[in-house]
């Protein structure tokens, strides 16, 4: 189908050749062009429709039913939603995810900003330092969560050994037995990993700041902080907003680090929202409830992403 339409594209007339019936030929050319364009975008549309949009609608549909894994189902209205506030683990997972997001967001931005300021220099080594600082993000949170689990082991994990040598913690600290300790360890891991990504986003924005602005600030005898405050940050508003939004959405969608390092424990105290959806579906097999939770998540993330587009567009004007 696609091939045939593309073949038609070959018939696009040479400009001028059909001068005698210009009007007709132009509209024919436009028709062919429109058909070729549609054919080119159709595979992408099909993929997005089948694997993103359909599941999205299906999710809403399931959330209104008592969907069992096998057998018939019937509509239950908003029952799955009205049950959510009474699901203590779900409520706790939302509060925990918000707590986690609140803790990591600002450190990621501040460290990412300072690192970007450091590596935007054209001094020797700057690009190597940039790569080094970005390396943990490239390696990925899944892999690093496995390694963090090893290094947080009581008695021999490297983190415990170093902290005990510094007399900051016992070598036998069992991080995952205490929700606060587990959260603290995971936050350190995530800030360490994600700062590099914020650094790259801000660095991309900083490339648009004209060098002359710094030079004239130098002439005026501006201090480092004055230059950042008066030159960089105002021009970087959009990049800062974008990196904040990406970081907040990423935190709200957290799963790997909690699943791997704490498995939600002790008890259910470190179950993140995505992990609760996963457990509700995979372990408890409450398809309708899991879908209702997912719809809540989609609305929250959709709103944040919508704000992102607004932020991006507002500065274009």
């Amino acid at each position: 189908m696609e091939g045939a339409a593309l073949g038609d594209g070959r018939d696009v007339p040479v400009p001028g050749a059909a001068a005698s019936r210009r009007r007709g030929s132009r509209s024919r050319r436009e028709r062919l062009e429109a058909r070729a364009g549609l054919a080119l975008v159709s595979p992408a549309i099909a993929m997005v429709a089948v694997f993103i949009l359909f599941p999205l609608g299906f999710c809403v549909y399931i959330s209104l039913t008592n969907w069992p894994l096998i057998g018939p189902y019937h509509f239950v209205g908003l029952a799955n939603y009205t049950a959510l506030p009474h699901d203590s683990v779900f409520v706790q997972s939302i509060l925990f995810t918000l707590e986690y997001t609140a803790i990591v967001t600002i450190p990621i931005l501040v460290f990412g900003y300072l690192m970007a300021v450091f590596v935007r220099s054209n001094r020797p080594g700057a690009s190597i330092f940039r790569t080094c600082m970005f390396l943990p993000y490239i390696v990925g949170l899944t892999t690093l969560s496995f390694l963090a689990e090893v290094e947080l082991q009581p008695g021999y994990g490297t983190a415990n050994v170093i902290l005990s040598k510094l007399h900051l913690a016992s070598i036998n600290t069992i991080w995952v037995q205490n929700a606060n300790l587990a959260l603290a360890a995971i936050c350190v891991l995530v800030v360490w990993l994600a700062s590099g990504f914020t650094m790259m986003l801000l660095l991309a924005g900083m490339q648009g700041v004209p060098e002359q602005l710094y030079e004239s600030a130098d002439v005026d005898g501006a201090s480092w902080w004055e230059k950042e405050r008066l030159v960089t940050i105002p021009l970087l508003r959009r990049s800062i907003a974008l990196s904040l939004i990406i970081s907040v959405v990423g935190s709200i969608l957290a799963f790997n680090q909690f699943y791997i390092i704490t498995d939600g424990g002790p008890g259910t105290s470190t179950v993140s929202l995505v992990m609760e959806i996963y457990e509700t579906f995979n372990t408890a097999m409450h398809v309708g409830a899991a879908s209702a939770m997912a719809v809540v998540l989609i609305v929250v993330v959709g709103l944040i992403t919508f704000v992102q587009f607004r932020v991006l567009r507002s500065d274009d004007a």
Partner: peptide, 8 residues
């Protein structure tokens, strides 16, 4: 977010 539509 793909994390939200894994069930459907």
């Amino acid at each position: 977010p793909f994390q939200a539509v894994l069930t459907p």
